[in-house]
């Protein structure tokens, strides 16, 4: 499904700010996997997502999606098979376009000169009803008028209206209030299960990382330091994870307040 072979990325090479963001990383994700990713700030989680989505081209290595080498493809081409949500709930929608127009752009049915059809509209209303946020009543509102939670939920619908091969969730509930976060997370689970999506999710919440999905990886210094399968994950507690983290990263990092939240 997704095969990453020995990718590396160095930012600002040859300068005093040189940073090895990803260091010879390999990863094999199977179809239907729901993988959670944890790691301290700067451990390379978002950089990994940027590499997969094509926000930059990696320095070395290969990225293969569904048997197709996408290593050198630009972001907007890869986006045909990859859906992505960011931490910032405002980043996935165009604020001055209406809910309907945003969905129409994401759904990209029809040719360049086609406008929104009645079928499209019905499909969107149906998808929005699933959210149970009343967005189906606000099709003609500008998205900028919606709350962060509503916008993130809408982004989720937009990213999955044509089920992507791969869904990347980059702490997509972290900037929401607890109520909205829980709601968006439930919707995420539902959509991922219903469409049997392959999904990678970055989170800072260890309990969430253990509860969700069938695989867990921990990153540190641009490498994968822990990789737990479904069985191992079930037997692991938050304390175990912290121990694993200590072993992998060394004591020093644990003392840093850059640490993961054990319970939120």
């Amino acid at each position: 499904m997704l095969k990453i072979e020995h990718i590396s990325k160095v930012f600002n090479p040859g300068t005093i700010n040189e940073k090895i963001a990803i260091d010879d990383l390999s990863l094999d994700v199977k179809e239907g996997d729901f993988m959670t990713i944890i790691g301290a700030n700067g451990s390379g989680k978002s950089t990994l997502f940027n590499a997969i989505a094509g926000s930059f081209i990696t320095d070395k290595g290969k990225i293969i999606l569904y048997g197709k080498d996408v290593t050198l493809l630009p972001e907007h081409i890869r986006a045909r098979s990859i859906g992505r949500l960011f931490q910032d709930p405002l980043s996935g929608t165009a604020p001055h376009l209406t809910v309907l127009e945003n969905l129409a752009l994401a759904a990209q049915s029809g040719g360049w000169l086609s406008s929104i059809t009645r079928d499209d509209k019905e499909r969107f209303i149906k998808a929005l009803k699933e959210l149970d946020m009343g967005l189906e009543e606000r099709l003609d509102s500008e998205v900028g008028l919606l709350s962060g939670g509503q916008r993130q939920a809408l982004t989720l619908v937009m990213a999955t209206i044509n089920p992507p091969k791969l869904l990347l969730l980059d702490e997509h509930t972290a900037a929401l209030d607890p109520g909205s976060a829980a709601k968006v997370l439930n919707i995420t689970k539902k959509i991922v299960e219903e469409n049997k999506l392959t999904c990678l999710m970055v989170t800072h919440n260890m309990q969430q990382a253990l509860d969700l999905g069938n695989r867990l990886i921990m990153m540190n210094g641009g490498e994968i330091v822990v990789d737990l399968n479904s069985e191992e994950k079930k037997r692991t507690t938050v304390e175990d994870l912290l121990d694993l983290f200590k072993k992998a990263a060394g004591e020093s990092l644990l003392n840093d307040r850059v640490l993961l939240s054990a319970n939120e």
Binding site: E75, H76, I77, A79, F86, G92, L105, M158
Partner: peptide, 18 residues
């Protein structure tokens, strides 16, 4: 719509494969 979105949120345009 894609042109209007380009002026509004270019990241969103790219992630919509445009």
């Amino acid at each position: 719509l894609a042109i209007r979105a380009t002026g509004d949120n270019i990241t969103m345009v790219r992630s919509s494969s445009i």
